[in-house]
Simulated scan of single mutants.
Amino acid sequence: MDNTLVFYFDFMSPFAYLAHHRLTAIAERFGYVVQYKPIDLRQAKLAAGNTGPSNREIPPKLRYLATDMNRWAAAYGVPIAFPPSFDSDRINKGLFYAVDQGQAANYVSAAWHRVWGLGGDMSDEGLLREVASELGWPADEFLASTNGTDARQRYEDNNREAQSKGVFGVPTMMVGEQMWWGNDRLNFLVEYLESTAKAATGGAK
């Protein structure tokens, strides 16, 4: 059985940040491994035909989403604060260096804590240096990787793959061909994993 739980995300998304906090425990509970796949959210939306304004450009929706974010953060017991920038290109690409170091989950946690937990600037080299330092990496090498051709190619590959699978937003979670979009769909993911686990044991309780 393939026990991979694919997680498409963009560090600019607060709801992907929120989903991450619960997803780790869900994966561990059912014996799955989270495969982190950073994508460009704007590209995914455009590829799906969503050419409308971003949520940040719709004041009534933004006010509601800010309230909703805070409700979810309180429910999960995690901090949340708006960052000053939504330029996630380099911090997204930094994931590939983390994968090569075997520290993908640690990188995602460290980066998101600084961005949406503390409200840090995701495009700031200083923030990226802090993440590298926490994970024991040479900061200059890490920063160079985020601008390198390898990271760019892998990022493009992720975007193409996501679009080919019909991913139109983040967070998106996939197990095989099954897809769930949104932090508020995690309960449906849990139901699916429960039913899959039950079927694998012949329906035994």
Rank of each mutant, 00 (worst) to 15 (best):
F82L: 11
W181K: 04
L127W: 10
S195A: 14
D124Y: 01
P171K: 02
Y36R: 09
T24Q: 14
K205Y: 12
P14G: 06
G148N: 12
A197N: 14
K45L: 13
G120L: 06
N106I: 00
L128E: 08
V108A: 06
M122R: 08
D10Q: 02
V108C: 06
E125M: 03
E134T: 14
S54F: 11
E156D: 14
D68W: 00
V33K: 15
Y36E: 05
A132N: 08
A73G: 07
R29H: 10
I91T: 05
L23N: 10
Y155C: 00
T149D: 14
P59M: 05
D40Y: 12
P53I: 02
F9V: 00
L62I: 04
D87E: 13
W137Q: 03
V175S: 05
E28P: 09
R185P: 02
E125H: 11
D40G: 10
R160G: 07
L143V: 07
D89I: 12
R152F: 09
L41R: 13
A204G: 15
E134V: 13
L95N: 12
L128F: 07
I80V: 13
G126I: 03
F30V: 07
A200E: 14
F15T: 09
R154T: 06
P138D: 11
A74T: 14
D157M: 07
A204E: 15
G169R: 05
H21A: 03
F188V: 01
D121W: 05
V115D: 03
T196C: 04
N50W: 07
G202A: 02
N159I: 08
L118F: 01
P59A: 02
G203Q: 05
L46I: 11
R185Y: 01
W137P: 03
R129Y: 02
A74Q: 14
A19M: 02
N92P: 06
K205W: 12
A75M: 10
R160V: 10
M173P: 04
S85Q: 08
L193D: 09
R185L: 00
V99S: 01
A105W: 01
E130K: 13
R185S: 02
N70L: 09
S123E: 12
P138A: 07
P79H: 11
Q153D: 08
L135R: 10
M1I: 06
G136H: 03
S109R: 15
A199M: 10
N92W: 04
D10R: 02
L41I: 15
Y107G: 01
V34I: 15
M174T: 12
A98N: 06
I39M: 13
L186N: 05
V190K: 08
S13Q: 06
